[in-house]
Amino acid sequence: MTSQAGASPAGTLHADAVATLESWKPADPGQESLRHAFLGFLASREDTCFRECAAGHVTASAVVLDDTGSRVLLTLHPRVGRWLQLGGHCEPEDTTLAGAALREAREESGIEDLELVPAPVHLDVHPITCSLGVPTRHFDVRFTVRAPRGAEPVRSAESDDLRWWPVDALPPGSEDLTGLVKAAISDGPEH
């Protein structure tokens, strides 16, 4: 299963991550600086898109907005113990970062008919102890995803809770998501 002649799925995902970040031009200087850091990290080794890369790894997440853009779907993450956007590790079958973000959004929300804006909306690097059991870093590439009208999420085993929140009234302890949600609201096909 490859989309490029002779390329492995892992190589295809890595190439897509590089191409995605090379073509994205954020207006925010801090995001531009992070974009360069991500590209440097991706240039350092070929396995950066998978959790086995103990030095850190690229993850993909989705800011899921309802059809009006007035609510955001957040998950109460069981390991982290706080409300976050949906997302997670890239899997061996993923060939694009956008596809990984959409897969994660579908798996974690139970909503199939989601629409993804294919360009990133935000980047973040954060320390975490994930499935490797050792401290590492997530180089998170975040995308905007829109839910269809009337979409009702179904909590998966990956979440302690899952619910819609007004974009201007996020749950306590998630104030750091405000900039991300604002970026997703203003995101559109032209970005």
Rank of each mutant, 00 (worst) to 15 (best):
A151L: 11
W164I: 13
V181K: 02
D161P: 05
A169L: 11
I128V: 15
L180W: 00
T136R: 01
L132M: 13
R142F: 05
P135C: 06
V145M: 06
L123V: 03
P153G: 12
E175S: 15
R163K: 15
V134Y: 07
V154R: 15
A147W: 02
L177G: 04
D176W: 15
W165V: 06
H122K: 04
A151E: 05
P172N: 12
L170W: 10
A157P: 00
R142A: 03
A157S: 08
A151W: 01
D160W: 04
S131Y: 11
I128D: 04
V141C: 10
L114S: 08
H122N: 10
L116A: 07
L116Q: 02
D161W: 01
P127S: 13
A157C: 04
P120Q: 09
H138T: 01
G179S: 14
T129M: 05
E115W: 09
S159K: 03
R155Q: 15
A169G: 12
P166E: 07
V134S: 11
A169P: 06
T178S: 14
H126L: 07
L170M: 13
H122P: 02
R142W: 03
G133Q: 12
R146Y: 07
P153I: 09
L180K: 02
S131P: 00
L114D: 05
H126Q: 05
D168I: 03
R146I: 11
G150Y: 02
A119C: 09
T144D: 02
E152A: 08
V167P: 00
R149M: 14
V167Q: 00
E115H: 14
G150Q: 04
R142S: 06
D168E: 13
T144S: 07
I128M: 07
H138L: 07
G173I: 04
V145A: 04
F143P: 05
D124T: 11
P166Y: 10
H138P: 00
K182S: 06
A147L: 05
P148H: 13
P120R: 05
D160T: 07
T178K: 15
P148M: 13
A119M: 12
L114Y: 02
T178Q: 15
V121R: 00
P166M: 09
P172E: 11
A151C: 13
G179C: 07
R142K: 14
P118M: 04
C130I: 01
R155V: 08
S159G: 12
G173A: 06
R137L: 14
V121L: 12
L170I: 13
P118D: 00
R137T: 10
L132A: 11
K182A: 14
H122S: 12
D176S: 15
T178Y: 08
R163A: 14
A157L: 07
T178H: 13
D161K: 03
E175K: 15
A151S: 14
W164D: 08
H138G: 00
L114W: 01
V167R: 00
R155N: 02
P166W: 09
